Simulated assay, not measured.
Amino acid sequence: MGGDYAPALAMMTVQVGFAGLNIVSKLAMDSGMSPFVMITYRNIVATVFLAPLAFLLERKTIMELKGKTLFQLFLCSIFGATLNQILYFVGLKYSSPTIACALSNMLPAITFVMAVPFRMETVRIKTVSGQAKVWGTVLCVGGSMLMTFYKGSLIKLWGPHIHWRYASTSAAATSASTGGSHHMVLGAVLVIASCFAWAIWFIIQAKMCRSFASPYTSSTLLCFMAGMQCLVISFAVERKWSVWVLGWDIRLVAVLYIGVVGSGLAFALMSWCIQRRGPLFVSMFSPLLLVIVAILGWGILDEKLFLGSAVGSALIVGGLYLVLWGKGREMEMDANAVVPMVPDEFISSTGLPVFFSPTEEH
């Protein structure tokens, strides 16, 4: 993969894959599948899928693994896979794909806030770009709170012609068994919590890529560790062997899809993009997911759109693009700045000079 557009194309591919993940996994959970069991299968399938690729493409890099890298991978597996996936999928079970994806748009703002203390992002509050990032973050948080705690009136849309009857039946059964708005609020809070775990993974992954730039190997080890962690948690939560049975139905489709596409390809591509463009760049593409899932949710799941969700989504997307605009303006200013030559000895002994941005490529 090469060229300036390759990271953008890779992240667009990831978002399309995630859109299918939200729909398929929601249908599987509506059919009665445990989210803990599904996440365990997801990471096991992803490990099996990625291991041959890592061996063929990066078999020499396995010798470069050190104790520090393994510890960073362990932290990545906890925050980027285990915690993030458990919080998100349980939240998705009690909410809807559109709401879960809309709240996931908080990710860039959360990533920005968490990256500042680690000097991976700068505020520059006295500049227009810095103010745009701050106000964008405020809008994202406000939009997420509105979606979580305000429902509003129903926005009437024409009925979709591609509606899937199976989805309607399973969704109706789940809605009757889980309850109403109380569970919707719980689901929204869990999705927001998953964004914090996801942002922590971005930051740890960005640091690890500086010393171990092997996305397939790191993703394989990450999924393997997460699979073992989820297996322990699942056995503690789900005591019946029957919940692990997969038939020729939506559960098997969900496990294979989210394992290969949702974890295998997604983790590898995101790790590669973080290495190339930094953690904030990867989180910039979440609005694309919201648009795709909103269309699929309306067409396949017959989701209803309420005023609070619509206004909250608009605020989140608007805030996100303020953050992106500020980041783009900041990168333009840094690119136009005159960078003096610095001896290699100075850089290697004390780290990056103050006029370097840690998330940029040099």
Rank of each mutant, 00 (worst) to 15 (best):
D249G: 13
G278A: 09
H183E: 14
E238A: 02
W248F: 13
W248N: 15
S194P: 04
W198G: 03
I203N: 12
C223I: 03
F202G: 06
V232P: 02
T220R: 09
L246S: 03
L252N: 03
S181V: 10
I203K: 01
G227R: 10
D249R: 04
S286H: 09
K240D: 14
G308Q: 05
L246K: 06
L288D: 06
M284I: 06
C223P: 01
Q205W: 03
Q275D: 07
I233S: 00
P287G: 06
M270L: 13
I233N: 00
F235M: 10
I203P: 01
G297E: 09
F224S: 09
K207V: 02
G247K: 11
W201K: 02
L289M: 14
I233C: 01
F224Y: 11
A226V: 03
D302L: 05
A206L: 01
C223L: 02
W198A: 06
V255T: 12
K207E: 05
D302K: 13
V260Q: 07
F224P: 02
H183Y: 12
S263V: 02
A236R: 06
A193C: 13
S214N: 10
T220E: 04
S263G: 07
T217S: 14
S211W: 00
M228H: 01
L190M: 15
P287E: 11
L290R: 00
A268M: 13
K304D: 11
I292W: 07
Q205E: 14
L269Q: 05
V253C: 14
C195P: 00
L269I: 07
M284Y: 12
E238T: 02
V293S: 11
I203D: 04
S242K: 09
L269R: 05
L265C: 13
V282D: 02
G297I: 04
A188L: 06
V189H: 02
V282N: 08
F202E: 01
G187H: 08
K304W: 10
L221K: 08
I203M: 11
W272E: 15
F285P: 01
M208Q: 15
A294V: 09
V261H: 07
G264M: 10
F267K: 01
A213Q: 11
V245P: 00
D249N: 15
T217M: 13
H183Q: 14
L290S: 13
W272H: 13
L289Q: 15
I258L: 10
M184E: 15
S234W: 00
P287K: 03
L305M: 12
R239W: 04
R276P: 04
I250Q: 03
I204P: 00
L301R: 10
V291I: 15
I274N: 08
R251T: 04
W241D: 10
V253K: 14
S263H: 05
P279N: 04
V237N: 05
T217D: 06
V189G: 03
S218Q: 11
I292E: 11
V260D: 12
L256I: 14
G264E: 07
M208F: 03
S181Q: 12
T220D: 00
A236T: 12
M184F: 14
L290Q: 11
F202M: 14
F306T: 14
V243I: 09
L289H: 05
I292R: 07
L256K: 07
L307I: 10
Y216D: 04
A226F: 00
L290I: 13
M228C: 15
F267N: 11
L252E: 06
L289N: 13
A226Y: 01
G259H: 05
I292Q: 12
G180N: 11
S283E: 04
L231N: 02
V260W: 10
